[in-house]
């Protein structure tokens, strides 16, 4: 469902953030992407979101070849991808409810659908009681749950998370990972970029390791132990 075929990304500065990267991720998989800072993880996420265009190689998601994608088709592609960031990226002037509803507004869902689906999603991430609160009134873990609810509300096929626990304490980190694991078990493909050694070791998922833009290992039920 996600295929990178000899993908190279060189920034205009000349920096090669990804160098000839090839991998396959199947439908329903849970994959960690690990690697030290600057190894090209965020670049990889941006390529998958089609925020960036690779300088070489082809990306294919659900049969859509990115190089053939017209500008007008990008929104439809992105609706299949839910995205979660380290810094949550919630709208500060909107409540929990409004932040999640925003994702449906943006893809032009009706008020009726929004009123029906947002409360259910907030229940799923365990924030049903806090729908009226603003992001600043929530803990980091709670804010990340809102972000996950926003990413999930349009029922994407794939969740891309770029260091979702980077700003969280161990307890909250574990809860967020558990939530992502539950989402994966219901059928959504999940790709998580992370630094979190304990969690990667514990969860026994596939681990793709990047170093200086190259894949140096790709292990089923791997751990963080391959760190150099």
């Amino acid at each position: 469902m996600i295929v990178l075929d000899h993908v190279t990304m060189q920034y205009p500065t000349g920096k090669k953030a990804l160098d000839d990267v090839t991998f396959h991720i199947n439908k329903g998989e849970f994959v960690f992407i690990v690697g030290s800072s600057g190894s090209g993880k965020t670049t990889l996420i941006k390529l998958l979101l089609k925020e960036l265009t690779p300088t070489k190689g082809e990306i294919t998601v659900e049969g859509k070849r990115y190089s053939r994608l017209k500008r007008k088709e990008i929104p439809m592609l992105r609706r299949k991808l839910g995205v979660v960031f380290q810094d949550f990226r919630l709208l500060k002037d909107r409540t929990v409810f409004e932040n999640v509803a925003f994702a449906q507004q943006v893809i032009e869902k009706s008020m009726k659908e929004i009123r029906r689906e947002v409360p259910a999603m907030l229940t799923m991430v365990g924030l049903a009681d806090q729908y009226k609160q603003y992001p600043r009134e929530l803990s980091g873990g709670e804010q990340q749950r809102v972000a996950i609810a926003r990413a999930m509300i349009n029922r994407p096929d794939i969740i891309l998370a770029d260091e979702p626990t980077g700003d969280l304490d161990p307890k909250n980190s574990e809860e967020i990972m558990t939530l992502l694991d539950e989402i994966n078990k219901k059928g959504t493909t999940v790709v998580v970029v992370t630094h979190n050694r304990e969690i990667v070791d514990e969860m026994k998922k596939r681990v793709i390791r990047l170093k200086k833009g190259k894949i140096i290992s790709d292990v089923e039920e791997g751990g963080y132990r391959y760190e150099d």
Binding site: E51, R71, K72, P75, V106, I107, E108
Partner: peptide, 16 residues
Amino acid sequence: KEEIAIMKLIGAKDSF
């Protein structure tokens, strides 16, 4: 800016 960036990532059409 931030709001627009998020909108686009969520899949808002240009016209929206």
